[in-house]
Design a protein around this nucleic acid. Structure first.
Lengths: 165, 165
DNA sequence: GACATAGGTAGCGTTTCGCAACCAGTATTA
DNA sequence: TAATACTGGTTGCGAAACGCTACCTATGTC
C-alpha cells in the first residue's frame, strides 16, 4: 500500500473520522451489540450493560441523532420507549463483527462459548476479510490507493455496484 | 438472529469488549490508519493528526503494550523511534476498512477522491461483508448463535480453518 | 560550543464519564 | 380514586480523560 499515500487532507475527510464521530465513544459499540441481541428498552440497556443512566440517555440520543437507531414510544405501554436499529445501524454489523473476531483471535480471557453461525446450515460464519472485486481475499500488501478519476470504466462499474448494497 | 440471544455473561466476555479496550479510545483508530499509510515517527503522527503530544505518547505506549505496534529506536539516527504495526495490528485492517466504508456509504461531506483498489488489477475492493463458510454473503437475518459444543464435526473444522488465518 | 531536531513530560483548564439522588408521566393495585 | 410501582429520563458532584502550552533530555549538525 506504499505507492500512493493518503495526503493529510484526504485522511482528514475520509469516511473513518465521520464513522468515529458516531461510533467512537466508549459505549456506542456495546450499545449496538446489545441492540443486535434484541434489546430495545432503556432499562434493558441500563441493567444488562451497567452503563450510567445519564450516559446511556446521551448515547441513545446521539445514535438516534445520527440515524443509527430510532426512538418511538410504545403504543401498548406509553411509559416505554422502543429503540430500534435503522438500516444504517444494521449496516454496521460487518464492522462490529470484524472487531469482535479480532478480539477473539488475539486476546486471552475471551469467552467463545457462543459461535455466530449461518442459520441455514448451522456452520460458523467466515472471518471478515478484504476482498477484490472478483472475490479473492486481499492482504495489506495487495492494496493501493487510486484517484477516482483514474479508475477507468471497469472500476467505475465496480463502485456503482458497491453503492447499491 | 433472534433464536438464541447472548446472555449477559456472554456479552461481557465476548471479543468486542477486549477489542474496545485496545481500540475504543478516541485516537486509536486514526493512529492505526496513519500507520497503515506509512507513518512511523512520533513527529509524523503529531503533525499530521494534530493530536496532543501527551495523548499521542500515551496512545502509542498503549498500542505497544497491547501488541498492536512495536517501538524500536532507529539505528541510523538514535533520536528517532520507529513505530511499526505488528501482525496483530495489521489484522485490524478489515475492521478499520469496514468502519471506513460505512462512513463513506452513510455520511455526507466525506471525501472519496481516493479509492482503495486491488494493486494487481486496479479495481476497487469490494465492500466488507459477512459471509458463510461457503462464501455466500449473509445478512443479519441469516445469522444465529450456537453453542460451540453443538457445532458438530463440520462446524469444528470450519473454526479450525478460520483460526489459522 | 551553539543550535536544531526527535521524543517525551509537566502543569493547568476543559470536557467527558460514573455514581447517586431526584423527578415526571404512565400503569397497576387497593 | 388514592396509593404505589415502573419506565425513562435529568441534575449535581467528584473522578478520569483530553487538549494546549511550555519545558526537558538526548542526539545529531554546523
Amino acid at each position: 500500500m506504499g505507492e500512493l499515500r493518503e495526503s493529510l487532507a484526504d485522511m482528514a475527510t475520509c469516511g473513518l473520522p465521520s464513522a468515529l464521530e458516531v461510533m467512537g465513544e466508549r459505549w456506542s459499540f456495546l450499545l449496538l451489540r446489545a441492540a443486535f441481541n434484541g434489546l430495545k428498552h432503556f432499562e434493558e440497556f441500563s441493567t444488562e450493560l451497567g452503563i450510567a443512566r445519564n450516559i446511556l440517555s446521551n448515547r441513545l440520543a446521539r445514535l438516534v441523532e445520527h440515524g443509527v437507531m430510532t426512538r418511538q414510544p410504545c403504543s401498548d405501554d406509553r411509559r416505554k420507549v422502543e429503540y430500534c436499529l435503522t438500516p444504517k445501524g444494521v449496516d454496521l454489523l460487518p464492522a462490529m463483527l470484524a472487531l469482535r473476531q479480532w478480539g477473539e483471535r488475539h486476546n486471552q480471557n475471551v469467552n467463545t462459548q457462543l459461535v455466530l453461525v449461518d442459520a441455514r446450515d448451522g456452520l460458523p460464519v467466515a472471518p471478515v476479510t478484504i476482498r477484490a472485486a472478483d472475490g479473492r481475499d486481499l492482504t495489506w500488501h495487495d492494496l493501493a490507493w487510486k484517484r477516482r478519476e483514474d479508475l477507468g470504466k471497469a472500476g467505475v462499474e465496480c463502485c456503482e455496484k458497491a453503492d447499491l448494497l
